[in-house]
Design a protein around this nucleic acid. Structure first.
Lengths: 146, 146
DNA sequence: CGATAATGTATCGTGTTACGATGTATTTAT
DNA sequence: ATAAATACATCGTAACACGATACATTATCG
């Protein structure tokens, strides 16, 4: 039980670090993720709205909105695909490239620090945590803590 | 570079699974996290607003608001601490306990499935990903994809 | 070949959530 | 006793995602 809680706290710490890093770089958190997924598109492919929606686990219209905000922020370029005129191709502007580079650096660094405890939590959970049925509500009577 | 993107996509998939699971149980995602962190408080301690804020990486006022919404939803109990009347103790209602139990079950299950690829991504990143400087913008000319 | 389905993107209104700024009550330190 | 620190609360604001809906383009099928 506490395993799950600890794992989530761990992940949340990472995400919160990420949010702050993005903000420090002048980006919204999701804009950073958009840049990352555009740059991280599989080799030989260009990012489309649908690809982003899939990679970011968003509905397509959320990806549309995100890409437009990011375009307005000068981070990405949206160009219609000439081959399939239903598609819109997303690419990074040089500003987007620079922002992403800096962010990727600190993120990789941070992940090197957090990886051990994350891996440990994951290992414990996938190994143990046979059931949660035992330990919900195993708290303590009011008064004797701290 | 793609390593980071893949790792984030992986995490996002898990979080999205979690959101859906919470919704299916009639909870908001953050309400679920609140329950989890209340139940997951360190042995011998009761959850306070500040503890939750710390565990969830939130500002205290966000934790206040979350706890109030969750109280209104009948999931948690907020009782003033008699020892330190600045504090508010958070506990699960039986409804909260039930919801959390079900959710923890499916989450542990899901994590057992996702753990391998998450661990793999983490390992690769903390090992390799020497620098991100190489592969930003290594995309492909428009036209030959898909 | 023309109607219909499927695909990809777009728009709008709505709700959740988190934050900063600010305020109040309680406890601790000097 | 007064100042400072701690813990919680309130309010206005903004990001973000979603469902519902719409429209254009491409695929498919009789």
């Amino acid at each position: 039980m506490q395993l799950l809680a600890q794992f989530r706290a761990e992940i949340r710490r990472f995400l919160r670090f990420s949010e702050k890093a993005a903000a420090a770089a002048g980006l919204e958190p999701q804009q950073h993720q958009l840049l990352l997924q555009i740059a991280g598109a599989p080799d030989g492919t260009l990012a489309t709205i649908s690809h982003i929606a899939e990679a970011m686990s968003l509905e397509h219209h959320s990806a549309v909105e995100l890409s437009k905000r990011s375009e307005a922020a000068g981070l990405v370029l949206r160009t219609p695909d000439v081959n399939d005129r239903r598609c819109v191709i997303l690419e990074l502007t040089s500003k987007g490239v620079k922002a992403l580079r800096g962010l990727s650096e600190v993120h990789a660094q941070q992940l090197r620090e957090l990886a051990p405890s994350l891996i440990q939590a994951l290992t414990k959970i996938s190994g143990a945590e046979s059931t949660t049925a035992s330990a919900v509500g195993e708290n303590v009577k009011k008064g004797d803590r701290r």
